[in-house]
């Protein structure tokens, strides 16, 4: 400790505030706003999260164009929805690390002693994932448009809603992972990285899965991310087909499973 702290030692007289019961909605909103605050004040993490997807967009698109022989615009039409899902995947799956840090420093324990309900502690945190994801997705779209990317507007809006639902579930799972491995950072990153790449590759984000060996295709069919990616491609193209419905369902299932697992992990947390 550097300087000696000197300060007046008087706690205020007011015993006035008496704690009152609060609604789950109040609690969830409070947790959501608290989680969002550092992101808004310090948007560096949001900007940083776009850099990697931008590299894929800038350096991988030409390779796709070269290997497929299609135009840049057509390639972007196929690739950009995948990049948007990828950035959501990267950003949201790592969010548990923030909770893990709060578990180490002690503030997580303090929230557990507060009257905030366990599910609101989880849902509020998970809902926050929506905001950086949408901002980042819109930046990617904005960057791709001058190169010929033409999203269907209504489809893009619905696509972002589907992605948001998926992110809430994935974020909750990331928090659940942090709660499960407790303060073991190595375990958190080990599991996150181990799952991240197979999920991404099997979802056909970078390359189409058509013509893949049967076993690989089978694996991709059990990957919920596959359906989300297909739905984003369909919606952004403006086709309101079965792919869109399947993707919305996959996102909703991920969301429900994530929140249930997450809230359970939060309740078991001490």
């Amino acid at each position: 400790m550097s300087a000696v702290d000197t300060h007046p030692t008087r706690t205020p007289d007011a015993p006035a505030p008496v704690s009152r019961a609060t609604s789950p909605l109040h609690d969830t909103a409070l947790v959501f706003v608290r989680e969002l605050r550092p992101v808004v004040r310090d948007p560096f993490s949001v900007i940083f999260g776009i850099i990697q997807p931008l590299f894929f967009l800038g350096l991988f698109t030409p390779l796709l164009v070269a290997s497929s022989g299609q135009s840049t615009a057509d390639t972007l039409q196929w690739f950009v929805p995948g990049v948007i899902v990828m950035l959501a995947l990267f950003g949201t799956s790592t969010t548990g690390a923030n909770l893990q840090f709060e578990m180490q420093t002690g503030s997580h324990e303090r929230t557990l002693v507060s009257p905030l309900s366990r599910s609101s502690l989880m849902i509020g945190r998970a809902l926050k994932e929506i905001v950086p994801t949408i901002v980042q997705a819109l930046v990617i779209v904005g960057v791709a448009v001058p190169f010929g990317f033409r999203p269907d507007l209504a489809g893009l809006v619905v696509g972002l809603v589907v992605l948001s639902v998926f992110c809430v579930g994935l974020g909750a799972l990331s928090y659940a992972l942090a709660l499960a491995v407790k303060e073991n950072q190595w375990a958190f990153w080990g599991v996150q990285q181990t799952l991240l790449f197979p999920l991404m590759l099997l979802a056909g984000i970078l390359l189409p899965l058509q013509g893949a060996p049967g076993w690989l295709e089978a694996l991709s069919k059990v990957n919920p991310l596959t359906y989300v990616v297909d739905a984003e491609r369909a919606l952004i193209e403006g086709s309101w087909n079965g792919d869109a419905v399947a993707g919305a369902a996959a996102a909703a299932i991920t969301c429900v499973v994530g929140l249930v697992v997450g809230a359970r992990a939060m309740r078991a947390s001490s």
Partner: peptide
């Protein structure tokens, strides 16, 4: 507790206010 009640990424005042609100 033994650790720090306020999250390190937050501003001091924000954590205090949110904490107060969590008690209604």
């Amino acid at each position: 507790g033994q650790g720090n009640s306020a999250a390190h990424a937050q501003r001091a005042i924000d954590e205090l206010v949110v904490s107060g609100q969590s008690y209604g």
